[in-house]
Design a protein around this nucleic acid. Structure first.
Length: 561
RNA sequence: GCGCCCGUAGCUCAGCUGGAUAGAGCGUCUGCCUCCGGAGCAGAAGGCCACAGGUUCGAAUCCUGUCGGGCGCACCA
């Protein structure tokens, strides 16, 4: 597709004398008008002529191989020769196969991604889903562009709540089952300690003391307990990641950066941007256009904060990876935190500060209200996935009872539904969790895309041996599909650039709609061998594209379902 | 109180970074399986793009204000 756009730009540049890059090529409102369009309005002032007249003149003047040019009002519309369109796009897919959509624009550059980042001692629940799924998808999108990607799980394993938890275990550890269901036990203790410390100063102090000991680095009972908590939690997280198909290069909790805290603070102090305020060490951020409270580096008792550890992590990551981008896939509730983080780096005049991006996303809430682990009102990930898989199993039982390997496919479809559902809308939008929506497999859903893929796979199986030569002129009525397929590499690029997997998800939905409606009146396995062969090549191309797209989103593409 | 984000069909959302007559899915109604997978397809109904100004040849898209909702605002993470 890009080749056609380039050709059009070239032709227009010659005819108008304008730079190629300033020629905006877009899609016409109605596909009947053409495949691509150039609005002539911007030229009106320069040429002192009405746009429709310019369009008409350009239509005469511009000659582009394989593309016919028609002026419609103020627009210059381009129609790509059908034969060439089919043969170019499908040829590209045939050449690239499952690598279709990939490119090398990121070669030699590194992108660090910080995603998932749950807190230890808590169950893995649906609140962790968005960061995990969005982050993993954004990461795969960058992989596809040739970037070296570094996925980091920035586990929340540090902070005063772990002091509280150690104190709670010391006091009530024998009242819960820490052996068989440790996370459940910890969750119970966490709720209890938050409740009781309000009226029990001794308990509150025990918690603070435990965190002080933890931060002191002392190898003793507190640290042992904390380490144990971490291990138990990571085991549970790993099960979730395995099921979701999510991986990391590094699991580095906040504790990992502990040894770098001193030098980080020194560095900021040396840069001359730190000051003491109300007994605490802060960086004032008053000069910025967004009004921000100061960033706290050290509490008045000398202990560090979240921001200190994130600053240490940012320095550490830059020094280790020299990243081109460092993406923090974290909820929009933490927007201010990342603004402050970047503002501190800006005050230090670090040129790489713009490379840090907060990839923020909207909040997930349950219909009854928000999720809160302190109150214990959560929906566990396993529970969600189990129910989706169970639902998929039922649908298979109903629609395709003879399916072999039905359990595995139910897992792929159920989990695919959950993942796709989270990626299909713009990430900034808040989401209210609705079972009816997550368990729906019709319409704009993951299973719809998977179904389309399976349907194409089925046709290819039945047409085995008949797929061969391609005569593009036989695929005239598939032009919308071909144009979409041609757009795919650009969609991947934009989705990565914008850290917005929904752009890819929306593309897939639209492609599947086009294909499903084309399939009805166009029998692929036609009596005519030439027609069947060409249509099979098209079906093959579409199947490859859908499969690649799903893979980038982290959704399986079963051959049958 | 201040700051940021969101507001498009009854509901959930797209709208290609400012372009032609605003599009899907769900739900409602009507059709389509002796025909490659009906988890599908075709059609109908449904819109003051929250509201008011402004910029522009052109605004759902950019700016200002108002209203509604969400999130955040120094020793939690």
């Amino acid at each position: 597709m890009q080749r056609f756009i380039d050709r059009i730009r070239e032709g227009l540049a010659q005819a108008t004398g304008l730079e190629r890059d300033e020629l905006k090529i877009e899609s016409p409102r109605d596909s009947k008008l053409g495949d691509l369009a150039f609005p002539c309005f911007p030229l009106a002032r320069k040429l002192k002529q009405a746009p429709p007249k310019i369009a008409a003149e350009l239509a005469e003047k511009v000659r582009i191989a394989g593309i016919t040019t028609v002026a419609t009002g103020p627009y210059l519309n381009f129609r790509i020769d059908r034969k060439e369109l089919a043969e170019t796009v499908l040829g590209e897919i045939q050449g690239a196969q499952e690598n279709f959509g990939e490119s090398k624009i990121g070669l030699g550059k590194t992108v660090v991604l910080d995603y998932s980042s749950p807190n230890i001692a808590k169950r893995f629940h649906v609140g962790h889903l968005r960061s995990t799924i969005i982050g993993a998808a954004v990461r795969r999108l960058h992989d596809a562009l040739g970037y070296r990607t570094i996925g980091i799980n920035h586990i929340g394993d540090w902070g005063s709540q772990f002091g509280k938890l150690v104190a709670a275990i010391d006091r009530w550890g024998d009242t819960v089952d820490l052996e068989n269901d440790p996370l459940e036990a910890l969750s119970t203790l966490y709720v209890r300690v938050n409740e009781e410390e309000k009226s029990d100063p001794e308990l509150a102090e025990a918690g603070r003391a435990a965190f002080r000991e933890l931060e002191s680095g002392k190898q003793g009972h507190v640290r042992e307990t904390w380490k144990h908590l971490t291990e138990l939690s990571l085991q549970e997280f790993d099960r979730a990641y395995q099921r979701l198909g999510v991986t990391f290069d590094f699991v580095r909790g906040e504790a990992f950066y502990e040894p770098y805290l001193r030098s980080t603070i020194e560095r900021i102090v040396e840069a001359g941007v730190a000051e003491t305020s109300e007994g605490a060490l802060v960086v004032s951020l008053e000069g910025f256009k967004e009004k921000m409270p100061p960033c706290l580096l050290e509490k008045s008792d000398g202990t560090t904060l979240y921001a200190t550890r994130d600053l240490a992590a940012a320095f550490h990551r830059f020094e280790e990876f020299r990243f081109e981008r460092c993406l923090y896939v974290v909820g929009s509730a933490q927007k201010l935190h990342f603004q402050q983080l970047k503002a501190v780096l800006k005050r230090m005049n670090l040129e790489w500060e713009p490379r840090l991006e907060h990839v923020d996303f909207g909040m997930l809430s349950l219909p009854g209200g928000k999720l809160s682990s302190r109150k214990g009102s959560v929906l566990l990930l396993d529970e969600l996935l189990n129910r989706a898989v169970e639902e998929a199993r039922k649908v298979i039982e109903d629609k395709n009872p003879d399916l072999t390997d039905a359990d595995r496919i139910a897992e792929e479809v159920g989990i695919g539904a959950v993942i796709f559902n989270d990626l299909k809308r713009e990430r900034i939008k808040d989401v209210v969790f609705e079972w009816s929506e997550v368990l729906s497999f019709e319409g704009e859903t993951g299973p719809y895309v998977q179904y389309t893929h399976a349907r194409l796979a089925s046709i290819l199986r039945k047409g085995a041996g008949r797929e061969g030569s391609l005569d593009g002129s036989l695929l005239e009525n598939a032009a919308p599909i071909l144009l979409s397929l041609g757009r795919f590499p650009g969609v991947v690029r934009n989705a990565a650039e914008n850290s917005e997997p929904s752009e890819l998800a929306q593309f897939l939905l639209s492609l599947c709609r086009e294909i499903n409606s084309w399939l009805v009146p166009n029998k692929v396995l036609s009596e005519d061998p030439g027609l069947a062969s060409s249509r099979l090549v098209l079906v093959r191309g579409a199947k490859i594209c859908i499969r690649s797209g799903l893979r980038l989103l982290g959704v399986a593409a079963p051959e049958e379902m």
